[in-house]
Nucleic acid binder design. Structure first.
Length: 256
DNA sequence: ATGGTCGTTGCACGA
């Protein structure tokens, strides 16, 4: 079974490339972020023709998350299931696919450390942990995959010394991610590669991709029972090349 | 040399 997370940065702008990539990589479960579509604009029939059932939670214009599955999709939950007031943004959708409880998440960017959006980001991460703890068992098959907008540690950036007092690397953000992982998750890519220099996002500007100036912020978190089945993980940076790419590359995790 | 590009929308803003 192949599980993928990919921030497509507008499915409307990216559909042709997404279709071509799905045909090539043949994933079984795809967690997608930043579809930037309303639910009635989501191209479910296009994915159906490629063999995928799907569930989408969008608002149009910004955000928007989806799950595609070739191994069934049931018990779809949009937003957090914690009884608190709904998140104003469409940033999380969960479903059961092939026996795995899967969530596709688009963690808030944070913008800057002195921005209200940064506090929203930290609160969102805490709420994500509570959501997982309330709805899942750490001994079960659970995957939370998506754009976390957090580089877990200094191996996940090019030059840590240049990243002081900025989002994605602050101790508070990293602690929030560690708190989520401590519930029972492994950063599956890191399980297979303990070196750095393999990133999942590169700014469109300044030729960052070609300079290798990226960050690893797209993660597939998996519980122990899923990790026992894991055989390899990779970032497909080829998907970041060529005409009209997303600024993120897909991350893959294969299970037996 | 400290910018630079995208995607949205609408004549800026978010990432």
């Amino acid at each position: 079974m192949r599980i993928v997370t990919w921030n497509v940065n507008s499915l409307k702008a990216r559909l042709e490339r997404v279709e071509a990539w799905l045909d090539e990589a043949r994933p079984d479960i795809v967690c997608m972020q930043e579809t930037k579509l309303a639910d009635d604009a989501f191209p479910a029939l296009t994915f159906q023709a490629l063999g995928y059932e799907s569930a989408h939670y969008g608002q149009g214009q910004w955000n928007g998350v989806a799950i595609l599955s070739r191994v069934g999709i049931s018990d779809v939950v949009v937003d957090f299931a914690d009884g608190l007031p709904a998140d104003p943004d469409a940033r999380i959708i969960s479903a059961t696919c092939g026996g795995i409880r899967v969530s596709s998440v688009y963690v808030p960017n944070g913008r800057s450390l002195d921005n209200d959006h940064y506090h929203y980001k930290l609160q969102w991460m805490e709420r994500l942990r509570n959501h997982v703890a309330a709805t899942c068992d750490p001994t079960a098959d659970v995957v939370v995959a998506g754009d976390f907008n957090i580089a877990p540690d200094d191996r996940d950036v090019v030059d840590p010394a240049k990243l002081v007092d900025v989002t994605h690397v602050s101790p508070q953000e990293r602690a929030a991610l560690m708190a989520l992982e401590s519930w029972g998750f492994t950063d599956s890519f890191r399980h297979f590669y303990d070196q750095g220099s393999l990133y999942s996002w590169w700014d469109y500007r300044a030729g960052d991709f070609h300079k290798g100036n990226g960050m690893r912020i797209d993660l597939i978190l998996a519980t122990a029972s899923v990790m026992k089945r894991a055989t390899w993980s990779i970032v497909d940076r080829n998907a970041r090349k060529g005409t009209s790419p997303s600024d993120h590359a897909p991350v893959l995790l294969d299970l037996v």
